[in-house]
Design a binder for these strands. Structure first.
Lengths: 340, 340
DNA sequence: GTTACGTATGTCATCGATAACATAAGCTCA
DNA sequence: TGAGCTTATGTTATCGATGACATACGTAAC
């Protein structure tokens, strides 16, 4: 290009803005951070200079000097329901964004603690101001404790280190409500297709199921275990379909319920005429299953926003555990038993 | 605490490590970055000191001095399919992680360009080294161009600014393949439930549908437009169910297909006996729809990893557009027309 | 009319890693 | 053996914003 002399395309710095506006760099800093002690007139000049130069503040420098990155880390598990992961990501990002925080994510591939430690280290390296752990891991290692002691941490539906606060949907209640619904319809027994036992929410939902049965004086049948996928629900459904007196099933997730229903249908068991089924999550497709699923709604978006709020409000609050309630959406996959 | 004197809990710095290891800070830096010119012996001493002090490098300082943040930004749209968003996030994060990059996300709530600009600015402020835009936005504004000129950018299934490279699944081909499948089965006409027209993939899939019909010498009926949700599919399905000669439908997403199928069934039209339906995505639940959906598989995970690879390999490659092919999964929602 | 205080702004050192340059030691080859 | 190169390490300046402190001015109070 034969243009006029141009500076070597360096991003303008605060000093450049200061020079243009005829003030000091510190004043620019103050003006941009809405410090009270700046004349409106000065602020206007600074903002004009910012606009003119296309100035963009350098986050790294800010972090280095102030020690705070205005970034929070989010740890997610790669497997498991797509739906909940997407909802959690969106919820965290929205709440963080509103508070002026960026979100850095770390996805871990499996539930082992080594991966978990590496992810936390990675986020710690980035200098995040806080961490939301959305991994339903039960065991917590010493190294994880080390990191969560240094950085404020909130676990979402997961295990609690002694230094992290936690928040979650009341999964046990979700399991109890689902099971109660079936019992209230007149079913004498409720079978359960559970999630993997390492998952805390799977365990809690199972406990809720057991609790509801116990309260009704019913001995729980052995639970069948899936891996959250529709496919695993299908496999367990093939087993359930072969047990004659099954009239009611509580599946630990909508996706597994889809699989269970297909297996039952293939074996000639109609839903809800022969077998009622209730599950948990209320994903968008739940209403479009055939039949539409009765399911316990989980507001991931809301609970994850709440997790961020909890994280940002600091330790002062003294709150260490928050529980978000779950509510039942009754649709067409449940009905009274035929012979009741 | 009446413990012995402890330093005021400051994170150890490279200088501390250097002192402990008996070398200079620069050598520590080199050792940790696997610079070739470090004696194995020295490196060992440094690593031992790192271990002993629990040293963790300060990313902000690194960014400030090297100008590179080892972070890439990911821009996502909050609405639209949960499934694809989760898959894209996972794919980007995995590929980035493998290359030693962190991922910072910015979700935008709506398709307007103002939000888009703000998200890009936010990422630019954070000093990301590159940006993956997974937003199927068509219009591109000047401000967006400004940012994508400064920072390497790859768009995933989206619009191309002149400065961003792009990569995507061949959506037009996906639409063509889906439509051809129905025509090959003997259907004389194929109706279409499209995605929102501002979405590039919706538009391309529609074009593929039109192309396939044109190649067969068939005039395309007016497309019906949904918003990707199962609910919108249901509403359009109620219209289709009232048109007697509809025997084949191409839905632009699996989720909408679920809705269409339910509406058809409620109106007594059987799938696939009366109406065949094919869609796009191949989400996990597609095989558990009733009937199981014939659908065009989209490998979001792979294409998003590829996007990161494209981003990181730099401009040198000269590649500006990569297209990932799509493949058909034939299941039970399509069949030859009854009277053919 | 001096003291005291508040407000607006400037100066300087600092955060921690790194690039650029400097140095010292070891090696090769004429 | 010493010029010339390579390799390992040290020294110094630097990135850009900010906290702590300093200064200059105005205004209220005695």
């Amino acid at each position: 290009m034969t243009e006029a002399t141009e500076r070597p395309a360096r991003q303008p710095s605060m000093a450049d803005v200061a020079k243009t506006a005829g003030v000091s760099a510190q004043t620019v800093s103050r003006a941009l951070r809405n410090s009270p002690n700046v004349t409106p007139e000065t602020r206007k000049r600074v903002l004009a200079a910012v606009e003119q130069l296309g100035y963009r503040f350098n986050n790294a420098a800010r972090v280095l000097s102030s020690g705070r990155s205005h970034t929070i880390g989010l740890v997610l598990l790669q497997s498991g329901g797509y739906y909940s992961r997407a909802a959690v990501t969106a919820g965290v990002e929205a709440a963080a964004g509103e508070a002026g925080y960026a979100v850095s994510i770390a996805t871990i591939a499996s539930l082992d603690t080594g991966m978990m430690e590496r992810s936390l280290s990675k986020l710690a390296d980035q200098g995040v101001d806080g961490i939301v752990i959305a991994v339903p891991l039960i065991s917590v290692t010493r190294k994880m404790e080390d990191i969560t002691r240094d950085i404020p941490t909130v676990t979402l539906d997961g295990s609690r280190t002694s230094s992290a606060r936690s928040l979650g949907i009341d999964q046990q209640e979700a399991g109890r409500v689902a099971t109660r619904h079936l019992l209230d319809l007149g079913h004498r027994q409720v079978w359960h297709v559970a999630g993997p036992d390492e998952w805390i929410e799977a365990r809690r939902r199972r406990q809720g199921w057991q609790q509801a049965l116990a309260e009704a004086g019913i001995e729980a049948p052995p639970p069948l275990e899936g891996d959250w996928s529709p496919d695993s629900g299908y496999r367990q459904g093939q087993i359930l379909a072969r047990i004659p007196d099954v009239t009611a099933v509580f599946a630990a997730s909508d996706e597994m319920a889809f699989g269970v229903i297909r297996a039952l249908r293939e074996h000639g068991r109609k839903v809800p005429d022969d077998v009622s089924i209730v599950s948990v999550d209320d994903i968008a497709l739940a209403a479009y299953c055939c039949p539409p699923l009765t399911t316990v709604r989980q507001d991931f978006y809301q609970s994850s926003s709440a997790a961020v709020a909890l994280l940002l409000e600091g330790d002062d609050a003294g709150v260490t555990e928050v529980v978000v309630p779950a509510s039942l959406s009754v649709r067409a996959s449940t009905a009274p038993p035929r012979s009741s």
